[in-house]
Design a protein around this nucleic acid. Structure first.
Lengths: 229, 229
DNA sequence: CGTGGCCTTGATAAAGTTCAAGAGCCGTGG
DNA sequence: CCACGGCTCTTGAACTTTATCAAGGCCACG
């Protein structure tokens, strides 16, 4: 792994770490490759380490008894996942699957915890990461339980819009079926809501491309001030 | 704060810490008292530190625009809350209110992070705790989105039952209205489901007292194997 | 050019919410 | 000591939202 230190320093989790620590990390990291649709790990697998997405996309999801799935996260470049069992010391609580050709860095558990013990700044970065993830979950729980689907979609579109630089036009980088699952609904319902939003002049949809045409209207939906006719 | 080290060592977050570290913590902790119904902090407040419940009960909740609330957690003795914004360096993402006469320990942010820098084991304990909390959220999201309300209630009752020592009979320690919110529904719906479960012989309800009369039947509901007639 | 994946649309049914009203409980104050 | 007011909880009926089932369209890829 020749240029690994450079790659590592671009990962927010390792941001601001001194060169020496980055080199320590380099020594324990394992480069892994996954094709689209390939399983990274399954719920219940032993958590022997965690991953960081270097390239590609990974979805984390739960499966119900009847096989229905709920996507918990979709992670892209720079984002770590699977770190819960590293510290909680158990199994993975959900499934992970590459939804695109992906390159991942794998950090073995024992080597990593040893490193943390020696590096307070790494520990603090890790604490911040987990705290923020917790906060995201808080929001997700709020949305799943407080708002109806149009509101959740509106909120997600707003989130995506400024994630992508604040433009009014952007691409969905996941399939609409996956988006449905992420929002806690099914493709049929999502499709109808896209249709209604378009017809109301809130957005325009062209395949995976979304254009927001009524910022204020979307906002009203997202906050629950207004319903979708 | 004379016996603070003893109290601290009973908090899971600090369990197993060497005496010296407990004493360090003692030096920075602030004892606070809240009456029932009193606000601990509000959404958007600056996160200047985090809390641990020593005595009493605190609920963490979000308010929607229409004033409807969703309870995210209810914390009792030994449980920390509000630590997310401390590490992520943001504001409190939700409201906190004492729902009983409560005694809380407050840990100021700056002093605490300084301490972590010196104590790797403290950091590892915190990481484990946050990871476990994250895991719980995973389950909560799964439940909110994959199961219907009777299943969520059944799962919650089972959880409570062994939380309280595994007996078939126990008290709800929150109001049914609060329970409804915790399950992502409203009191009316919860009330009807209690009625149906009782009528089906799954449980018996007497005010806040619940008796499980058909363990297997509840289990089937909780896992989604069966629906409630 | 046909096949499979993904998306859309329609009809129907189930689950939950809303609105409205009433019952039970408890503390306060006359 | 009893009555009042304020809670929480319960019940009913109408309505809304979403899931389910079923079919058809579009597009990319072999």
């Amino acid at each position: 792994m020749s240029n690994a230190p450079e790659i590592l320093s671009d990962i927010p989790l390792f941001e601001g770490l001194p060169r020496a620590q980055l080199e320590d990390l380099t020594r324990i990291v394992v480069n892994k490759h996954f094709r689209k649709g390939q399983t990274v790990f399954s719920e219940g697998d032993k958590g022997t380490g965690f991953y960081v997405v270097i390239d590609g996309l990974v979805r984390i999801f739960k499966l119900s008894v009847e096989g229905k799935e709920q996507i918990l996260h979709i992670f892209g470049p720079g984002e770590p996942f699977g770190e819960v069992p590293v510290f909680a010391g158990r199994n993975f609580p959900a499934h992970a699957e590459a939804i695109a050709e992906s390159r991942l860095f794998f950090f073995p558990r024992d080597a990593f915890t040893a490193l943390i013990g020696e590096n307070p700044s790494l520990a603090l970065n890790m604490l911040a990461l987990l705290s923020m993830r917790l906060r995201q979950f808080t929001v997700q729980v709020e949305q799943l339980s407080l708002k109806e689907v149009p509101g959740r979609l509106a909120a997600y579109l707003q989130y995506l819009s400024d994630e992508k630089g604040g433009g009014t036009s952007f691409d969905l980088d996941i399939s609409k079926g996956h988006l449905a699952s992420l929002l806690g609904t099914i493709p049929e319902t999502l499709s109808r809501i896209f249709a209604r939003m378009t017809q109301q002049g809130l957005i325009r949809v062209d395949g995976p491309r979304i254009s927001i045409t009524d910022q204020a209207g979307l906002e009203a939906l997202a906050t629950g001030e207004k319903a979708l006719a």
